[in-house]
Amino acid sequence: MKFVGKAKLLKKQIINEENFRFVIKRSDEMGCVYPGQFFNVSASKVGYPMLKRPISVSDVGEDTIEFTIKIIGEGTRAMLDYNEGEAVELMGPLGNGFEYGGYRKILVIGGGIGIAPLKGLINSLKKTEVEIHSVLGYRDAPYLYEDFAANSAICEIVSENDEQYNRGYVTDPVKKMLESEVYDMIYVCGPYPMLKNLTDLFNSKGFRAQLLMEEKMACGIGACLVCTCKTKNGDFGFKHSRMCKDGPMFYSDEVIFDE
């Protein structure tokens, strides 16, 4: 089920200089919304920028949907002009989210704004028996880590610049954890180089992870073919899968990383 229309912005919250949060009224027409799925959200009330922005769901409530949005350009900046109580045009839920049934011990790895969709994942798992280990990486001061800290047996935080935390990248603690722990599934969301480096690591150790990826999108439903993820197999030895429709979750052993 895909909802196309307007939904009320219940809450707009500034998280820090770069990130903000939208809590949107969830309608029945949206059906089930799974962690890792996204909505195509209108960037502005006036129709400029023209294309909707694909925004991952960062949490789902009884009758709400939460988006955590990083300001990366004109569109996401324009979204800040929405006021609480106003209607936001959106379409969704879209794409294939995480697969998470039946695992007993999982590792969740997030980098920067990539932590947002993982928050939805751990919050939908927190009432289950699953043991969650989290590794969160930031450039500067951490944010969005509270739910991970509260629901993980182990929660490692690293930062490139914040001296209060272990300095470095998520790959450092992940390497150590993979040596001493066995996970039923690994979930990753973050910038492209992080996904690539971790995938190299998983491939070398024979692990398989679910990667939540991103790309600039237009239609958001798989018709226009402007967003692709290069994957294995296919007629040409590779395939241009559709990021929006076939993804944005791909298994690490499916994806071909360039450069």
């Binding site: 400029y48 920028p49 023209m50 294309l51 569109g75 790309e215 600039k216 999108m217 237009a218 226009c224 073919l225 402007v226 967003c227 692709t228 290069k230 296919g234 007629d235 040409f236 590779f238 395939k239 241009h240 360039d258």
Partner: peptide, 24 residues
């Protein structure tokens, strides 16, 4: 069959978009 062009295929510009799908 064609797999189309590699790399980024779309950039949004003022009231428009430039695509480079390459007939996938």
């Amino acid at each position: 069959p064609r797999e189309g062009n590699e790399g980024r295929r779309m950039v949004e510009t003022p009231m428009g978009m430039i695509n480079s799908v390459g007939l996938q």
